[in-house]
Simulated assay, not measured.
Amino acid sequence: MPAPLFESSFLQETLQASASSPRSVTLSNGVQMSLLQKGVLKISPPCEAKQTRHIVISSAVHGNETAPIEMVDDLASQIASESIIPGHHLLLIIAHPNAILAEERFVETNLNRLFGDADYPQSQELTLAVSLKEQVTSFWQGVPIASRWHLDMHCSIRASKHYTFAISPQSTYPTRQKEFIDFMRKAGIEAVLLSEEPSSTFSWFSSSKFGAQAATLELGQVAKFGHNDMHKLAKFNRAFLELVESAEFSTDGDMITYQVDSSIYRQNMDFEFYFDKALPNFSRFTKGEELGKDGEKVLTMPVEQGGIVFPNPDVELNQRAALIVKSCATRYVDNQLTVLD
C-alpha cells in the first residue's frame, strides 16, 4: 500500500496552522490524489471514459456550514481508503479554514460575494477567492464545457419550508441541462431557484465564466460539527456518492421550481425587516405587504404571493439582504430547463 496522503483526514490537514505542502499519491487502484494547497484536493480516476466529468465539489465557503464539510471530508476518506473508486476528475474544496476554526460564516467579509469582477477591498477572504478562482480555472483548462460541473454546498442560516434547495445562477451558457437537473431530483433537492441576475457567488463564477453545470446547494440548517441531522440528508448523500462513482440519473422525485423575481440590497445603516427573525425561507407575502425599511424607503412585496429567501438585515452595505421569488412552470427546450412565459 502507498503511504497515505494525510496523517488523519483532509479536514484535519486543512485546519492545521501550518501551510499544507503540495504532494501527491497514487493508490493501489490507480486513483491519484493530489493536495494542491491547503483545503484543495484534486482527485483523478484510474481511467478515462467518454462520459468522464470534471466536478468541483466545494464546502466551507461559509465556515460554520458544517454538513457539507463533513460530506467532503468523508468522501476524501472513502476514496483514500479505496472504499470508493471515483469515475470522474474531482476538485474537493474546504474553502475557509480560519472561519471554520472561528465557527463563523466569515472572518472579515462574506467570501461568497467575492467571485465577481469588481475591485474588492483587500481581505483574507479576497485572497481566498482569488486563489480558488485560479484553482478552478486550472482544473478546467482544456476541458470540454459539457464535462464541467460544480456543486457548491452550503447550509441555510435559518429554517426553511424546503429543507434542501438549490440556486441555479445566471449564465449566458446552457447551464440547466436535464442531466444536471435530474441529479438534483435524484438527490432529493426539494426546490430550485432560477436566477437571471448576475451575481458574485462561487457557483455563478463557474456557470458564467466556464459554462459549468453549477448550483449553490442549501443542505439543511447551520449546526455545529457532529450535530447535523444527516438522516435528513441521506438521500442527497447517496446520490452524491453515486455521482462520484459515475452513476447516471433518470428523472426521480418531485422538485418545485421558483423564479427569482428581484433582490433586496441594503443601501443604508438604518435597515430592518419587520417580520420575525426566525421566519423560514420561502415564507409568502401578499403583493404590497410591508417587509421592512431601508433608510426612509419602505420595502414591500413586489409580486403576488411572493416568497422571501435568505433575509438577512445584518449584511454589509450594498450587499444582498434577501431574494424575492415566485413559483414558475418550466419545460425543457433543447435539453435546457426553461421558464414558461
Rank of each mutant, 00 (worst) to 15 (best):
F225L: 05
V333M: 07
K50Q: 15
F210R: 00
A191R: 05
N335A: 05
A95H: 04
G188S: 14
A278M: 00
K297L: 15
S195K: 01
G142R: 08
S83T: 09
L90V: 09
G307P: 08
E103C: 10
Q32G: 01
F282V: 07
N98H: 06
A3F: 02
P97K: 05
D119N: 15
H96F: 12
G30K: 04
S58I: 11
D119P: 04
T109A: 10
Y258V: 04
T52E: 12
T172R: 00
Q135C: 03
F6S: 09
S207V: 00
V40L: 03
K209G: 00
Q122L: 09
F271K: 08
N228T: 06
R148W: 04
E104L: 11
A17C: 03
L337W: 02
A159W: 02
L291P: 13
A67M: 09
R158G: 02
E190C: 10
I324M: 11
R158S: 02
P144A: 07
T14M: 06
K133Q: 06
Q170C: 00
K297T: 15
F106A: 02
S171N: 00
M255W: 13
L92Y: 11
T137K: 05
P97D: 05
M1V: 04
T127W: 03
L243N: 07
L128V: 04
D270F: 13
E104H: 10
A102G: 11
L194S: 01
E13C: 03
P311I: 01
S250A: 13
S246L: 11
E70P: 03
L36V: 09
F139S: 03
L323Q: 09
F271L: 11
G306D: 13
Q122G: 05
V325T: 03
A129K: 04
P2G: 08
Q305A: 12
F202A: 10
S203W: 01
A60M: 03
A76Q: 04
L241Y: 15
S263W: 11
E290Y: 14
E65M: 05
A118G: 07
D182C: 07
K297F: 15
L114Y: 07
E104S: 14
L114S: 06
E272D: 13
A223Q: 10
L132G: 03
E290P: 11
P121D: 10
M230N: 10
S156D: 04
S59T: 05
P45R: 12
R158K: 10
G307T: 08
G306R: 12
R23M: 02
S58Y: 02
I93K: 02
W149S: 02
T175P: 00
G226F: 11
S203E: 01
E65C: 05
A159D: 12
M255Q: 15
L279C: 02
N268I: 11
H54T: 08
H96D: 11
N64H: 06
P144V: 09
K50Y: 12
R113K: 13
L41H: 11
L41N: 08
I84K: 06
E134G: 05
A191Y: 08
S263D: 07
P2Y: 10
V298R: 15
D182L: 05
A49H: 14
Y332D: 01
F210V: 00
P198Y: 01
Q78H: 07
R284G: 02
